[in-house]
Every structure is written in structure tokens, then in C-alpha cells.
């Protein structure tokens, strides 16, 4: 089932481990040279994956706190093994799927994707994982199903952010079935070829690269196939700000900030903004899913 989709961000663009370990020093050195030097490298850096440090120390995972550093600070307490995903709803083979069983049945591959947060920052991330469609086929989604709902673990003893009602817990997300089955949509279990760290949504998280980051739900424990559009956490809290679709769209602003541009994380104090791409650069692959839809209404 693997390799149905080919990266246009290729693995040659992944910085070698030695290099990304040194990139921090290099960048701070560059900062001294001046704005010009960094602005000049902007186009090349757009495709260059962020460092391990960028990806694992700057996270929105409110289950561990609202500060970007909180997930790294507090997520190590999370028990990720044993782990299982309960799959229910309109599927032929409902039940509890253990991580071992899932991993035995799929082929892990690397996917280097752009990642765009609704807060207008971005990264390029070398995930490893497998297509969500593979897991959904294991469970056998029935033809009446129209949507797939997801749920994050609720375990306030280990997830300290859940002790305060920042949003309604557990975190829930959803996709339309065609979005869920799309070959770009993956479940990630690794980063840079290593096991995914807890702060990035271990042991298994969704990655939908053409949607804002909050759609890519972390630490998944439940997947449900359903006929009704499922509730999604941020939409439930502020429907005017976060729609069900939440496709990356530079033309539709978030009420509190513009979505026209983004700043790639890890570029230092003089980072330049870069234009945000329609569907986060995956227009060719996914635009057909939304044909005929008014994307200013279905934001």
C-alpha cells in the first residue's frame, strides 16, 4: 500500500544529522552578518526541513500546557506503550487495534511535508508513517460512512494541561471520508526516522499537510466512521475562527490575524515572512476535493 504518493520535497533535502545539530550555531552566526544574508537564503530554506530541535521544542499540544515549550517540558511523563486505537462506528471490523498489530500490517515510509499552523508560523517536517487509508481499510469502512472522527487520549494524571479547561477535553477532530482516504493523509509514528517524541503526538498522530496544524490530531486513541460531520475541538470553542475544513488558504484570513504570509520557524531574529501557498502547496493534489465549494464559507 505504501508509496502511492511521491514527495516533491525529497529526502536529499533533509539535512544530514550532523548538519542540523550544528545549524543552530550556524544561524546565530549568520544573524550577526545581517538581515540581507538570511533574506537571500529564504527560497532555499522554504524546502529545507526544520531541525530536530525546531520540530520538538516548539509545539502546540495544549494537553501539556499552552506555552510552546510546555509539551517538551512535560510530555515525557506520558505512557505511550502499551497503546491501542479503538475503531468503531460504520466499520466491518470494529475493535481495539494495538500499536503492534497496526505496525505489523503497514509499511512505514518517509513523508517530508510542509506544516502550516493557523497562528501563521510554519515548518518543513520529515515524518515517517503510513497512509490513514491503510488503517481504515484494515477496519473496513462501510459505504454509508461520510466522515471519520478522531479522539486524543484523555489522561489528566499524565497530561497536566487537561486539568484546566483551556478547551473541552478530550481533543477531537474530524475529516470528510475522501480527505481521510487521500494518499497525502498519513498517521505519523516517527520524525527524522526516529520514534516520534511525546511532544509531537506519540505514539501515533494524524498529519493532513494541506490543513492548518490543529487538524492533525495527536496521540490518537479512537477513530470512528460516521454519517454525520463530527464535532471538532477548536470549532466547538470558536466557530467563527476555526471551521471544520480549515484548509490552508492565504485568501481567507483568520479573524484575528492574516493568513496571507507565514514565518518559518528556526530562522532567527531577522526571519522574513514568506507567502502562504494555497492548500499549503498541495493544490495540485487536493483542490479537486473541494470543487464547487465556496471556500470563504467552508473555511
Amino acid at each position: 500500500m505504501a508509496h502511492r504518493w511521491k514527495n516533491n520535497l525529497t529526502s536529499e533535502e533533509v539535512t544530514a544529522e550532523v548538519l542540523w545539530l550544528n545549524r543552530r550555531q550556524l544561524l546565530s552566526g549568520l544573524a550577526g552578518i545581517g538581515v540581507g544574508a538570511i533574506a537571500g537564503s529564504a527560497s532555499a530554506s522554504e524546502l529545507e526541513p526544520n531541525s530536530w530541535e525546531d520540530i520538538t521544542s516548539y509545539n502546540n499540544f495544549y494537553e501539556f500546557g499552552t506555552d510552546k515549550g510546555d509539551p517538551k517540558r512535560y510530555a515525557e511523563n506520558l505512557t505511550t506503550s502499551p497503546w491501542a486505537i479503538e475503531i468503531d462506528g460504520l466499520v466491518d471490523r470494529p475493535g481495539t487495534y494495538s500499536m503492534e498489530d497496526i505496525l505489523a500490517a503497514v509499511t512505514i515510509e518517509e513523508r517530508i511535508y510542509r506544516f502550516r499552523c493557523v497562528e501563521a508560523w510554519s515548518m518543513v517536517i520529515p515524518w515517517s508513517g503510513f497512509e490513514l487509508a491503510d488503517l481504515l481499510q484494515m477496519a473496513g469502512v462501510q459505504p454509508e460512512a461520510k466522515y471519520i472522527a478522531f479522539e486524543t487520549l484523555y489522561r489528566p494524571e499524565e497530561m497536566r494541561g487537561q486539568r484546566f479547561p483551556t478547551i473541552e477535553w478530550p481533543y477531537v477532530e474530524g475529516l470528510r471520508l475522501d480527505e481521510a482516504m487521500h494518499p497525502l493523509t498519513i498517521l505519523a509514528t516517527g520524525l527524522y526516522g526516529k520514534t516520534i517524541p511525546n511532544q509531537n503526538g506519540a505514539p501515533i498522530r494524524l498529519v493532513v499537510p494541506w490543513k492548518y496544524g490543529f487538524k492533525s490530531i495527536k496521540s490518537i486513541v479512537k477513530i470512528t466512521a460516521t454519517t454525520m460531520q463530527p464535532p471538532t475541538s477548536w470549532n466547538r470553542l470558536q466557530p467563527r475562527e476555526y471551521g471544520f475544513y480549515s484548509n490552508v488558504n492565504p485568501g481567507v484570513d483568520h479573524p484575528r490575524w492574516s493568513q496571507a504570509t507565514e514565518r518559518k520557524v528556526g530562522q532567527g531574529l531577522f526571519a522574513r515572512r514568506q507567502p502562504t501557498l494555497m492548500f499549503n502547496g498541495y493544490e495540485e493534489e487536493v483542490a479537486s476535493l473541494y470543487e464547487g465549494m465556496d471556500l470563504t464559507k467552508h473555511y
Binding site: R24, S28, Y58, W121, G266, G268, L269
Partner: peptide, 18 residues
């Protein structure tokens, strides 16, 4: 803070942090 921002002491997103 400016010094920290220039030398990597404000994390990976120094502009926001500053």
C-alpha cells in the same frame, strides 16, 4: 533579551518570544 535572541537563547522562534 535582544542578546539572547541573537544568540539562540530565546528558543527557535525568537521574534515571537521577544
Amino acid at each position: 533579551w535582544l542578546y539572547l535572541g541573537l544568540t539562540g537563547g530565546l528558543g527557535v522562534e525568537p521574534i515571537e518570544r521577544l
